[in-house]
Amino acid sequence: MRDLLYRIRVPLLFVALVGLTATTMLADRRSLPAGAKDLPLLSGALLDVAVPLQAALSAPFDFVRGLFRRYVALTDLRTENEQLRSRVAQLEEENLQYREALIASERLERIDKMRGEIDLPMLPAEVASRELSPWYRSLLIDRGRANQVHAGMPALTEDGVVGLVTAASPHAARVMLLLDRQSAVDAMVQRSRARGIVRGLGAEELEFEFTAGSGDVEIGDTVITSGLGGVYPKGLRIGEIASLTAEGSHLQQRAKLRPAVDFGRLEELFVVLWRSPTLELLSGDLESPAPAASSGSGPGS
C-alpha cells in the first residue's frame, strides 16, 4: 500500500492540486461580491516584492520610451514648425496684398477726391525715369504730345503739386519738379492768405519767400498755389511751413517749406490737360494748343 501510494504520489499530487486550485479559484470568485478584501500574507508579500522590482525593471524602458516620445514630439514639433512657418509666410504675403489693396484703395479715394475738387481734365502718367544730374530736379513720364501732353501743363498728385511739364515729345515728357532751382510758383498761405513765391532749392525742401506785410505765416501753415503765376491753377497744395528763417530784409521774409508730395516715392502723377492763357500766348507759335486748353479757362490764370 505504501509502495502504491509512493508510485502514484505525483498523480495524487496532481489531483490534489487541481482540486486545491479550483477550490481557491471558486472561493476567491465567491468572495469578490462581498467587496474588497485584503490579500493573504503570502500574496501581499509577493506583491510587495514584485511591485518595486517591476518599477525598477520598467525604469530603463520608461526612460527609453520617454526619450523616444520626446524625440517623436520634437520631430512633430519640427514638422509643425515648418508648416507654421510656411503658413506665416503665406499669411504675410496675403497680408501684404491686402495692405497694398488698402493703400491703393485709399489712394484711389484721394485721387477721386482730387478729381472732384479740380474740375479740369487730367491724364494719369507713370514716372519713367528721374533726372540723374544733381543740378536739375526733373523726371520723365510716359505720356507725350500723342496724349495731348504739352509743355506748360502742371503735373500733380493727390497730395499736391509735382511740377511743370517743360518739354514733350510724341510719347514722353519731362516734368520739372518744384524742387528744381529754376522752379518758382506764385503761392499763398491757406490760413492767412499771405502771398509769396515758392522756389526750389535743388534739395528736398522748398523756400517760401513772402512779403512781411502780406499776412502772418506760422509753422505748420499749408501753402497752396495762388493761381496768379499764370502756370498753376489756384488752390493746389504745395506743402507746409516747416520753419521760419530770420534771414532776408524786413520786407521780404523766408520760410522753409516741406513739400506735400513725397518726390522720392513718386511713381504716378496726373498731368492737368490745361495751360494758362499766358502760356498759350507765349507758346502758341511753337506748339499746337491742347484741346482741353482751347476749350476754355481754368480756375486760375
Partner: peptide
Amino acid sequence: LLASAALGYAADVLSGAPLGQHALLHV
C-alpha cells in the same frame, strides 16, 4: 508540479486573476 502550481498562484497575484486560475491551468 508544486513549483508549477506556485508559479500559477504567483501569476494570479501579479495579474489580478482569481486566485487559482493560472495555478489550475499550470497544473
